[in-house]
């Protein structure tokens, strides 16, 4: 009898410890996003056009090159930065130059930024300049979107698709490109 009670007490202690462990396994609840909030993510990887920095080689420079490597134009290895602006409802959420990646600076510029917006209607405008010779912007796009609470909206950039891609447009969602 005493042995049984002792075993029961031992079981009770172990049951209590494992129960507490199981409670902590999903309590307390963590609120990752405030109520009535949506998230806008601007994320892309794009290499700026480095042809703007190309220059013609002089006759002397061409002559200095090995015969099998002679060319008329030279371009720097390093890419120029990409300039991006993001506005929501007329307010500038992001503005900045994205440096090229890589040790030699010859990789694409990258951005992955998230912004919290109140759920509801918003006017989103995004602009990019990837050629330093351009005045203004090479790519622009804008959308009027209605964001539900907890919705995750994404702005991507795909050169092959013509420019900015909004997740709100669906799978085919290419933004309205207004090339300068």
């Amino acid at each position: 009898m005493i042995l049984g009670a002792r075993l029961l007490a031992q079981f009770g202690i172990l049951f209590f410890v494992i129960s507490v462990a199981s409670l902590i396994s999903n309590q307390p609840i963590f609120r990752a996003l405030p109520a009535d909030t949506a998230v806008l993510t601007m994320s892309f990887s794009h290499g700026a056009d480095r042809r703007a920095a190309c220059r013609p080689l002089t006759e002397e420079e061409i002559a200095d090159l090995p015969p099998n490597m002679r060319r008329t134009e030279i371009c720097p290895r390093r890419r120029p930065p990409v300039f991006v602006e993001l506005s929501v409802d007329g307010a500038r959420l992001f503005e900045g130059e994205l440096p090229p990646s890589g040790v030699a600076g010859d990789g694409p510029s990258r951005i992955h930024e998230q912004f919290r917006l109140m759920a509801g209607e918003h006017d989103i405008a995004v602009r990019m300049r990837d050629n330093p010779a351009t005045e203004g912007f090479d790519y622009t796009a804008s959308r009027h979107v209605v964001l539900a609470p907890a919705q995750h909206a994404v702005i991507d950039f795909k050169t092959g698709a013509g420019g900015f891609v909004f997740s709100s447009d669906g799978d085919e969602g290419v933004g309205a490109i207004q090339a300068n």
């Binding site: 396994s25 999903n26 309590q27 307390p28 609840i29 996003l33 405030p34 907890a150 919705q151 995750h152």
Partner: peptide, 11 residues
């Protein structure tokens, strides 16, 4: 397409 607003984290 959505952000999980409340999650029961395993602490």
């Amino acid at each position: 397409a959505t952000i999980p607003t409340e999650v029961g984290l395993d602490w």
